[in-house]
Amino acid sequence: MKTHPSLAALFLGLAAAPVLAGDDCDAPVQDWQPRDAVMQMAAQQGWQVQRLKIDDGCYEIRGRDAQGRAFKARLDPQTLRIMKMKMGDRDHDRERYRAGERTQGGDASPRSGDGDAAPPAPGATPHGSIE
């Protein structure tokens, strides 16, 4: 069978697509740090871990940070570097979503985009809002 060059290019493109997609981690399994190391790193950060799982080849932690705020963090399984961190409560997010309060961009933390700009108490963490 003779393969048309444009068809071959299309198949190659489709095969390459998953490699380019998303925030996936691609560390080989033998280089992964054990779960204990993740828990130790979380303890050093002052986090309370509620759930530790593996998602898209990365470690994913849900819990509360040293200030007691809910968060979700994605860690590189090889270096344990924080690749992504989202603040906020999942249930609270769902309620906001149901109420139609979708923030611009779709990747907002609940602290962002709520419109107010009240000065924080001394020692508080920064606050951002988009107008």
Partner: peptide
């Protein structure tokens, strides 16, 4: 800085819009 993202991330900012950040 391993804590550079802790509690300080939000949505991207659309064109023409204003990002207001309050920090201590």
């Amino acid at each position: 800085d391993s804590k550079r993202l802790q509690g300080v991330t939000g949505a991207s900012v659309g064109q023409g819009r204003t990002l207001r950040v309050t920090a201590d």
